[in-house]
Design a protein around this nucleic acid. Structure first.
Length: 541
DNA sequence: AGCCTACGCGCC
DNA sequence: AAAGGGCGCGTAGGCT
């Protein structure tokens, strides 16, 4: 195993260590190095498997390359170390390898893993690409912001590996009791629970026709024959239907979804040793949100959250940033009225009091419409109120929408950049504004809604990532036991010995403040993290 | 059989 | 006048 010596630099010698994990351990304890590697999702599990400690900091070349390419308007170029190095050398770029799950790649800087040509020395390439990335960061419009973004993204990569390995505490017994209560005893051989078959029969009786309740193509005509004309079989539409089959179908949908998506088969696939271990994909969403592979980790139904139970003597510290996106809009736009509302704990209530005659639901709809670009129904009217009372906030989102409609790109607070619209999804026809309903125009408006939301969602992700990185560092300061076990957009769960839960809760609050300061500077907007110390996730709401 | 899209629903 | 953002993943039903 090789490691670049401290005084090495691009031309310096590399050192060879028979036991790299031990050397990494020694250096991590001796100082606070920032480890530079091609991709944390490959190198870090490999090191942890061999006894390396948790590492404080890293620079993930692949993730940083993705951020820089996006910022430079080259979203679709390959991001691997080999591709970045080939661009530096003026060689043809290799395609990125297909994303895949964990593997047992036995070496850290193996050329083929990163699409390096056979004659390239991986360590030389890594050093050269890292240096070039530092120059590109320094040359970006806001170097401090881009540096922070790259550091937070890289820290996120460490947290993602750790969370995927630690897993979310999951009680098979509680889960089983829930399933049995809803679906009856587990049928043998993966068969459909009797409750579902029974509901299907009752639906057929009610409709007077044999239908598969899972098939909208069969259900719609069956309802039509019964005199009920529906545009779709979506739940919100069925809820307004008097026909007895509607209620039965709604119950069927609810239960069959639990069975199919989070039933016994799901648990056998994803829960081992009392832990649900999804694979987090950092940078999996262009806005900077994480994705997951397998297990649907970002959609754990509320109904099943009672199965998330702390170990004996432990607690879950559950923290979520309420109303994050409107607070982000307030902080970024500097809108005086919205910032005043965002200086309070319940932003929507403050907004309602200040501008919507105390009607909180209408205030919420108006604000969401501004951020999502909704104008149908009541939203259009509420939007007019928003525009009059919060002009700076509306100007920000509407400017982002216009940029997108014209084919331009927008950036988050820290510089994460929206992709340019692809030619097949978008053609600019602003020269022909009278043709209001043309497919091209609709596509442009759709892209405008995307960029409108991007500036908010991506800046919220900036904050969340900075918060996660700060929290991870603060938890390490408490000790080895408190562990991040879940992260979902604006929510984190820490699993900790009960006696440390108070310290963990304090660390959460401090991390939120730190993220606000780092990402948005000295703004009055609050980003409150609601923190609950519980034994069971379901008790946190 | 595998691959693709449409639909629908869970989460934020 | 009208225009609701981002995901993962299940089944159905068509295709090769």
């Amino acid at each position: 195993m090789r490691l670049l010596s401290e005084d090495g630099g691009p031309a310096g010698p590399s050192l060879v260590y028979p036991d790299l994990a031990a050397e990494v351990s020694r250096r991590e304890a001796a100082g606070s190095p920032r480890w530079v590697w091609a991709a944390a999702d490959e190198a870090y599990p490999w090191l942890l498997d061999r006894g390396a400690p948790r590492l404080a900091r890293c620079h993930d070349v692949k993730l940083v390359e993705g951020l820089l390419l996006g910022h430079e308007g080259r979203h679709r170029r390959p991001r691997s170390l080999g591709a970045a190095w080939a661009r530096l050398e003026g060689r043809p770029e290799p395609e990125d390898p297909p994303e895949s799950g964990a593997d047992d790649q036995p070496v850290l800087f193996a050329a083929d893993r990163h699409r390096l040509p056979p004659d390239a020395d991986p360590l030389t390439a890594l050093v050269a690409v890292h240096a070039a990335q530092q120059r590109r960061i320094a040359g970006s419009g806001h170097p401090e912001r881009m540096r922070l973004l790259c550091a937070a993204e890289s820290a996120g990569a460490l947290a993602a590996v750790e969370m995927g390995r630690d897993g979310l505490p999951w009680s098979a017994r509680v889960h089983d009791d829930l399933l049995t209560g809803l679906l009856g005893p587990r049928p043998a051989g993966g068969a459909r629970p009797a409750v579902l078959g029974d509901l299907a029969l009752r639906i057929q009786d009610a409709l007077g026709a044999p239908v598969n309740p899972d098939s909208p193509a069969q259900v719609l005509p069956a309802f039509a024959r019964a005199g009920v004309h529906l545009a779709s079989t979506r739940s919100h539409e069925l809820r307004g239907v008097e026909h007895p089959a509607a209620a039965l179908l709604l119950r069927y949908k609810e239960l069959s979804r639990i069975h199919a998506a989070h039933g016994w088969a799901w648990r056998e696939a994803w829960v081992r040793d009392g832990r649900f271990r999804p694979e987090y994909v950092v940078g999996g969403v262009v806005s900077g949100r994480w994705a997951t592979r397998g297990g649907g980790a970002l959609q754990i139904p509320r109904l099943l959250r009672s199965a998330v139970v702390a170990d004996p003597g432990h607690r879950l510290v559950v923290a979520d940033a309420g109303q994050l996106e409107p607070r982000v809009l307030a902080a970024m736009s500097g809108d005086v009225g919205l910032a005043r509302a965002a200086g309070e704990g319940d932003l929507y209530a403050a907004l309602a009091r200040d501008a919507f005659a105390g009607d909180r639901p209408r205030a919420k709809i108006g604000l969401l419409a501004a951020m999502y670009g909704q104008t149908s129904g009541e939203a259009g009217q509420l939007l007019a109120v928003m525009r009059r009372r919060f002009p700076a906030a509306l100007a920000l989102v509407e400017s982002a929408a216009r940029t997108g409609e014209a084919g331009g790109v927008v950036r988050s607070r820290l510089g994460r950049t929206s992709p340019a619209p692809s030619a097949d999804r978008f053609r600019d026809d602003t020269a022909d504004p009278d043709d209001g309903a043309s497919p091209d125009r609709r596509a442009a408006r759709s892209w405008g809604r995307f960029t409108r939301n991007f500036v908010i969602q991506a800046s919220a992700a900036d904050w969340a990532l900075a918060m996660l990185a700060a929290l991870r560092r603060r938890l390490a300061g408490i000790g080895p036991e408190p562990r991040l076990v879940f992260f979902q957009h604006d929510e984190v769960i820490v699993h900790t010995p009960a006696e440390l839960a108070g310290l963990v809760a304090d660390a959460v609050t401090a991390a939120g403040d730190e993220a606000r300061r780092l990402v948005f500077g000295p703004v009055r907007v609050l980003f409150p993290l609601q923190t609950h110390v519980v034994e069971c996730y379901a008790d946190a709401k």
